[in-house]
Write a protein that binds this DNA or RNA. Structure first.
Lengths: 233, 233
DNA sequence: GCGGATCTCGTACAGTGTTCGAGTACACTC
DNA sequence: GAGTGTACTCGAACACTGTACGAGATCCGC
């Protein structure tokens, strides 16, 4: 083992807490709050320092750099995901509940969507979720590599469905459109594609929220059906 | 129609080209090149200007701001995705080919993964792809909302599988690890979760590339199975 | 009281996106 | 050719950003 030394947030000991608002935990908590309110671009070390009544550079005593802080905040998100015990209900209900939980958590912390593509989730909470979901698929009857393939498939579906949903939401927010204005915008963009326009002009836009949940459920059920089939053979 | 005026990159006429290296198209092309080489963080207006032997702020004549430039570059990525004609082969092969194409394109332009969660794909090329895939699912036999649900499900799967893959790749690249060092890192992170370690220590890591493709295919087949079942009822 | 460790933070640097306005170059009319 | 207007370039400046550095402060054990 003479290779490069492995260093990571998750290995290095955090500094001990002294006063309130000065421990690594407090900093991460404040960062998450700020991210929830102002998004990824709204978090700056100076502003975060101000929020904690501290100098901007004081934070660097507890945290190596901003990326590391984001890694810590990201893992905090994983802590909110609930993996039901597959023993009590069937694995399908269990997987379904996990999927919905993941979606809700990401929607609650939209900035985390940007991190999914930037840093692997290696924090303790993420690992806990991975461990429990793995146990879940194992209990479902998957074996060998299929355990992890099924696992990856489920989380991929949730991520892939939710991440663009967030792009949609933030685009609406930034431009200040409501749902109707947004629809008009995409209609303009879809000009020349009659098929797409047919979809956009469907009279199903009364409740876009419910609509998206229907879509999510459709895909989720399909995907679980597919996994179940895999299980039968 | 007295509401806010809709403005977007896709509506406003681009400036006409004059010299080489000065049209909007040339700028976008150079931006894509730069993004491919240096990633999202490696693109700055000043560096892009220098690459085109232009002042940094000259670009603002052709492009409103950096976000708009990214939107244009993003759409260029969509142009590379190929949607096979479902008439020649079955819809399953067609969907499968599309999925693989999308994955490859995103892996080729890893920076696009970050944009999926930031801006909806409303450019002409993205719309073209959406239109063709919609036709594909229609031809497959889906009707009404199910057309778009199935469509969303497929792209969600591809995105969700590919985006974390990119996070993995860039993390390896930035820290300068090879596959083995990375595996050691996650093993360290997974300490205390015997189940996870069992997976990590499997002797299947000879070719991580092939491994990921196996995983992708497993999920893809499952997901298409699930959609097919939807079709039967 | 005296180290030594722990912790704070002002200053500074290199970089960012973007605005503004002055300047240039070219095409077209008289 | 002179004049005029439009298309285009870009240097300077502004308000930010993350972070390295090092000087000071505070506290604890002796």
């Amino acid at each position: 083992m003479t290779g490069k030394q492995f260093t990571s947030v998750w290995i290095r000991e955090p500094r001990k807490a002294t006063g309130p608002g000065r421990s690594r935990q407090e900093i991460v908590r404040a960062a998450v709050e700020m991210l929830d309110e102002q998004g990824l671009g709204g978090l700056s070390m100076r502003k975060l320092g101000a929020k904690l009544s501290a100098g901007a550079t004081s934070l660097y005593w507890y945290v190596a750099n901003k990326d590391e802080l984001l890694e810590l905040a990201y893992d905090e998100v994983w802590a909110e995901m609930t993996v039901p015990d597959p023993g009590r209900v069937g694995w399908r209900d269990s997987a379904s509940a996990l999927a919905h939980s993941m979606r809700q958590v990401i929607l609650r912390h939209p900035w985390s969507a940007d991190l999914i593509g930037s840093m692997p989730a290696l924090g303790p909470h993420a690992m806990g979720v991975a461990d429990r979901t793995r146990k879940m698929f194992k209990a479902a009857g998957f074996t060998g590599l299929d355990i992890d393939f099924a696992n990856a498939t489920l989380t991929a579906y949730v991520f892939g469905m939710t991440i663009p949903e967030i792009a949609w939401n933030t685009a609406m927010g930034e431009r200040g459109y409501d749902a109707d204005e947004m629809r008009a915008a995409v209609a303009r963009a879809a000009a020349g594609h009659p098929d797409l326009l047919e979809r956009i002009n469907m009279d199903t836009h009364d409740d876009p929220q419910a609509m998206r949940e229907m879509c999510f459920d459709f895909g989720l059920v399909s995907m679980l059906d597919g996994l179940e089939r895999r299980l039968a053979t």
